[in-house]
Design a protein around this nucleic acid. Structure first.
Lengths: 201, 201, 201, 201
DNA sequence: GATGAATGAGTATTCATTCAT
DNA sequence: GATGAATGAATACTCATTCAT
């Protein structure tokens, strides 16, 4: 039992890397089995279809990220930092594809989109909880929390996912976030420093 | 020459409809020529590759929409209405795919994404101009106009493109827009009535 | 040993049902082991190949039917009734596939044909014996018994196996049978009543 | 137009030979294109699917045979000879597979069966006409013509198609045919000479 | 007796593209 | 301008069979 499970995890890992770096559509089953050094039959022993492999790859990736996000949720840090931390941890394929840069444009779109939706599903409740916490602490003040959180995620994703943002983008994002959640001006300003220190690395 | 041009426009029209309704990847060259009633060779007489056809289809579609947006830009209506009007007119495949609903989920993603980017490119300068106008009139008050406009478009697209929005979504969207542009509370409230009257139809 | 034998009989039973209802070619080894709830290896412990399984399935099925036919042979009923009884008892998959009707058309042909041939082999001597008996009793009168019996079986199979016969088919079949065996007109007329009463059920 | 048509006929011819000699299931598309010396794409330019190829192969074969049968129907020969002639001409793959003998047992069954049914459909009306003619001439005397003709075909096919018949088979077949059609004893006796002279060749 | 992981040759089908006419 | 016959690499998936444990 264990043996088969481990093997499957290995295969998922390999498929994950290939899907991310070349795109789902551009990765053939032949490519995967060659990389994995297994026979066609072995692949289909573990996965019903290629599509199913994608599904499992995404689930694996998301599970991981949601786990990281949950850790942050329970950490002993200020609420604004929690928000930013969770959002960052849910960025797909962030430091995971450092090799080929932002390879999520061409035909990775399909997978990217699938992931985006799943992450949305998982992230909205988590973040809502934190925002709630912020409201309780008097840091935030707003209604329609779920909708605002969702909007926050969409903007964040659009602004930062491709790594092509400018200073004004950051400014507006910070402004936006504060107003969206009804926070005092300056509450989220630390984001700028965070990004700067991140970029320096 | 003219005859050939007209023919090409027809083909683009056909390709456009097919790409929209079945997705780019799911539309084969064979499908197109069958629908158009022409031979394989004829298709390749007009287009270098299938990819190029897509490019031209998108350009055509965007040109049209930008044209419509430009008309609104020059119309004699209040600035907030202009903004909403332009955003609406740039919604891809809105009344153009009335048949099968929001056919932009499954594998239309690729085309949808390509269009989205092109529209962004075209829309940001147009909308920026209107916002500028609003600022001059004292209706809006903000910096980083281009970035804010972009954000507005992203949120609008995410909220409304699939047609699956709720009341709170509208509320937050209106709130967001006002704060994003530094408008007075209530300035964009008319959007709600607009959507309601649109939905009634 | 006994335990293994029983297990094998169970597997044969399962394979039998699946072959009959879905066809030999359309039933994969995977299908069988799933239905049986056993592992791949177990299957191949009991059977050398899938083909061999088919062979054994057919043998089992025929053994049964021949046994039934033999009972009729020894029964104390008139010779004409014996003939009809034996022919009926040898109909393959008659009350055995009551579920899906005449599932022997599409790709079941392969198995159907194999069975047909085996049944022929088994049936000709049995029926020949009965015809001999009929000749001894002065009911029939003919030479080349084996050949005539074979012909009888072929016609019977063609006429009745698919269950798509009409009144004239019955008439001709009865006429044929009488003349084939050199019986008096009317001798086999009871077949019509038999079929009618069978149909009424 | 003509060029393509001829090519297709050639391909059909090749497929025909291969299906007959190796069986439909055992002939892969790869086999066919290799034999034909064409590319995969070319094959699929002419045929939608492999199944469709089979369909067309069968149609071609039957058309030919029915044409031959029709010629005999209109010939100026005695009615009994017509009957035998038509039946013979409808024998599938008779002198057409002289090479590998009766290669229609193993998995050719599928095709064989398909052909058998189509031939039946075509042959029954043709032969019925001839029998009618025989009745008019006082040579035959029977009712239920279609059913009798069908039976005749079935028996003939079973007896002769595989080429494994004996003297008694011929005797019974002749006897059967005469009685089936209500002909005088001796009417069909010429069949025996026909077969003998055929076998001598 | 029984398991299940591993195999790999085999299969039909798709499709963008080319080019001689 | 237009045709349509020809291409061939690519692709996902199947399945009977083996064998170490």
């Amino acid at each position: 039992m264990k043996k088969g499970e481990r093997r499957k995890q290995e295969l998922l890992q390999i498929a994950y890397r290939m899907f991310i770096s070349r795109g789902y559509e551009n990765t053939s089953v032949d490519d995967i089995i060659e990389e994995a050094g297994i026979a066609k039959g072995t692949y289909y022993y573990y996965f019903e279809t290629k599509e199913q492999t994608l599904e499992e790859v995404i689930r694996m990736m998301i599970d991981r990220e949601v786990e990281a996000a949950r850790q942050i949720l329970q950490a002993e840090i200020p609420v604004p930092q929690k928000i930013v931390g969770i959002i960052s941890s849910l960025r797909p394929t962030q430091e995971e594809t450092p090799i080929e840069g932002a390879l999520m444009q061409p035909e990775n779109i399909v997978m990217h989109e699938k992931i985006r939706r799943k992450i949305m599903e998982a992230a909205v409740p988590l973040l809502s909880e934190v925002v709630q916490e912020g409201i309780a602490q008097g840091i935030f003040s707003c209604d329609c929390i779920a909708e605002r959180v969702r909007m926050l995620l969409v903007i964040s994703s659009d602004t930062f996912d491709e790594g092509l943002f400018t200073e004004p983008d950051i400014t507006v994002f910070i402004d936006m976030t504060e107003k969206l959640l009804g926070a005092q001006h300056g509450t989220m300003g630390f984001i700028r420093d965070l990004i700067r220190s991140g970029a320096e690395r």
